[in-house]
């Protein structure tokens, strides 16, 4: 970056050109970041979409032919693949379950944290523990706790007489996805709680005060005052978490590897791309995931704008 040039140019510019000068300088200052983002985000994304229209393979990335939408709608295309639809179903089920549980629990935890108390600092510290633990590590920690023979969860449940035989938490196809949801809820509820807490803390205190003076019951205060005021904040948090949950990879890959029963869309994509080396086909799946998330973001943004306008009115 030519600092001396910028320095020399700054003080001696005539007044009329100052604004234009500033704008040009702003572009220079933003350029390195924008270029990096374009190089690591924009360009690879465009290449992925392009690859999805070819028969490219990992072993011969440069040597491919254009095959149009064959990867999507062809005889062996994505839309005809039961594995793909299974992965879509798993992802949607995982997202729906984990985000709704995280929202409810996150709201509860945020309400606890919003209460002035001696426990508050301890609560906040405890809140950040699951959030700070790397996903791979939490997946391993829970895999160990949920181990079918030696795991503490089965041992305790057996001791309490809640189950008669040990459950295969991660191996049983009926259970595995729910175990994964459980771990995700443990890991992501803190994030949800923090975002909802931020919304809670922006509720003006006079609202509560007036309600308290009038003797409105607590539950009514929550339903009629708090909830409507924090709803836009909750909505933002739900959207963030949903978009995050739709691309889940680490947790599922570490807990159950490439198993068909729990495979998410991201796990499917990586298996096709890297393990099978089918760059064209894998890119088609990645492109589908991308457009799904893009569409959802656009819809969500529209909804949020409406919610904010209603809250402001």
């Amino acid at each position: 970056m030519p600092e001396t040039v910028l320095q020399a140019a700054f003080p001696s510019v005539p007044r009329g050109g100052l604004a234009a000068q500033r704008v040009r300088r702003a572009w220079w200052m933003a350029a390195p970041m924008l270029l990096v983002l374009a190089a690591v985000g924009g360009w690879p994304l465009l290449r992925t979409i392009w690859f999805s229209l070819t028969d490219s393979e990992l072993s011969r990335l440069d040597d491919y032919t254009f095959i149009g939408l064959e990867n999507y709608v062809g005889e062996y295309g994505l839309l005809a693949s039961t594995d793909w639809w299974h992965a879509v179903g798993n992802t949607l089920l995982f997202t729906g379950l984990s985000v709704s549980l995280e929202t409810l629990l996150g709201l509860g935890v945020a309400l606890l944290l919003n209460q002035p108390s001696r426990l508050r600092t301890l609560l906040r510290a405890a809140l950040l523990v699951p959030w700070a633990i790397p996903t791979v590590v939490s997946a391993k920690m829970w895999s160990w706790m949920l181990h079918d023979q030696f795991g503490i969860v089965n041992q305790q449940l057996l001791a309490l007489g809640l189950i008669a035989t040990p459950l295969a938490w991660t191996a049983d196809p009926q259970l595995a996805l729910f175990s994964i949801v459980l771990v995700d809820v443990w890991k992501a509820t803190p994030y949800m709680a923090l975002l909802i807490l931020a919304a809670l803390q922006m509720v003006p205190v006079d609202c509560y005060e007036a309600a308290q003076v009038d003797g409105v019951p607590r539950w009514q205060v929550f339903r009629r005052i708090t909830l409507p005021l924090i709803l836009p904040g909750i909505l933002v948090a739900v959207v963030f978490r949903t978009l995050d949950a739709l691309r889940v990879f680490d947790l599922i890959y570490v807990m159950t590897s490439n198993s068909r029963d729990t495979q998410s869309m991201s796990v499917f994509v990586r298996e096709q791309l890297i393990d099978f080396g089918l760059v064209g086909y894998g890119s088609a799946a990645a492109t589908c995931l991308f457009f799904m998330i893009a569409l959802l973001s656009i819809v969500a943004m529209g909804l949020m704008r409406k919610a904010f306008e209603r809250a402001a009115a």
């Binding site: 360009w43 992925t48 791309l273 998330i293």
Partner: peptide, 11 residues
């Protein structure tokens, strides 16, 4: 919001 796998092959 970009899923990591959406840039995987390009990257």
């Amino acid at each position: 919001m970009l899923p990591q796998v959406a840039v995987l092959s390009g990257m």
